[in-house]
């Protein structure tokens, strides 16, 4: 079930360092929202606050509200573990479990969530691998280690693993930055298909990618080194790339800085 994310007044710290300050935005369900901005502007940090992964970092701390439909992820009594089961994440570098086979990798999240019958498990694994456009490439070697696949295949395996647990939201932290152009294209096509079923948020350094895959784009910036990152604007992707309302966005997009 794709859900809407409503963020209000979100500030995140690393120890005493304020990484992002007072961010509010709405992420629409069944759409792709891209985060762009220069290095260090806090877009990855912000992404990691959306599934409470930020607080895993020593010293990581968050203030503000993240509403997933009508549930505040940061309300007291909310278990971060259960948040991460409904908000999936794909990382910059493909990180399949090295000791697990392809099958076990996809089934890993399901096994955490409870006991499944073997047949149920293979159904979900097949569906997820098909959903990640990987099934045809791996169906004959499901018992081989996931680490033996190519980088692009590993990343799609990680996407399959993330969607296998049927999350409401899928977060992607520069999912293509370690991949070659052909694998990147495969992932971008996949993102286009996945947005039918999930709310997708993607951080990217590649503005063409943001323009290609996203429906809405958010631009982040920071005033200087050591300053917290801020949301400058969020709008329809088309508008951001043709006629943004803030000058800094236009400067960034046209390559005048960053």
């Amino acid at each position: 079930m794709a859900k809407r994310i409503d963020i209000s007044g979100l500030t995140a710290y690393y120890g005493s360092h304020k990484a992002i300050e007072d961010i509010s935005m709405t992420v629409e369900p069944r759409s792709v929202t891209a985060f762009i901005g220069p290095s260090g502007c806090g877009k990855s940090t912000f992404l990691r606050t959306l599934n409470r992964m930020h607080e895993v970092t020593p010293g990581g701390r968050v203030e503000g509200k993240v509403m997933l439909d009508d549930e505040n992820l940061y309300a007291s009594g909310v278990d971060p573990v259960s948040v991460r089961r409904t908000v999936g994440m794909v990382f910059q570098r493909p990180n399949p479990f090295p000791t697990m086979s392809i099958f076990e990798n996809v089934a890993a999240g399901l096994k955490l969530n409870g006991s499944y019958k073997k047949s149920e498990l293979s159904d979900v694994v097949e569906k997820s691998l098909k959903g990640a456009n990987l099934w045809n490439e791996v169906k004959d070697r499901l018992n081989k280690p996931g680490a033996g696949l190519s980088g692009g295949q590993q990343q799609r395996l990680c996407i399959a693993r993330a969607i296998a647990v049927a999350p409401d939201v899928l977060l992607m932290d520069e999912p293509c930055s370690a991949l070659d152009p052909i694998s990147t294209l495969a992932i971008e096509d996949l993102i286009g298909e996945l947005k039918e079923r999930f709310t997708i948020v993607i951080v990217t350094h590649n503005m063409q990618q943001a323009a290609r895959v996203s429906d809405r784009t958010a631009f982040f910036n920071l005033a200087g080194v050591g300053q917290p990152g801020k949301l400058i604007e969020i709008d329809e992707t088309e508008r951001i790339f043709s006629n943004p309302s803030v000058q800094a966005t236009e400067d960034y997009i046209s390559g005048r800085f960053g």
Binding site: N51, V56, A162, V165
Partner: peptide, 11 residues
């Protein structure tokens, strides 16, 4: 990244 892979699945 291996630990985060598990964490992100809700481990």
């Amino acid at each position: 990244m291996h630990e985060e892979a598990a964490l992100a699945l809700g481990a």
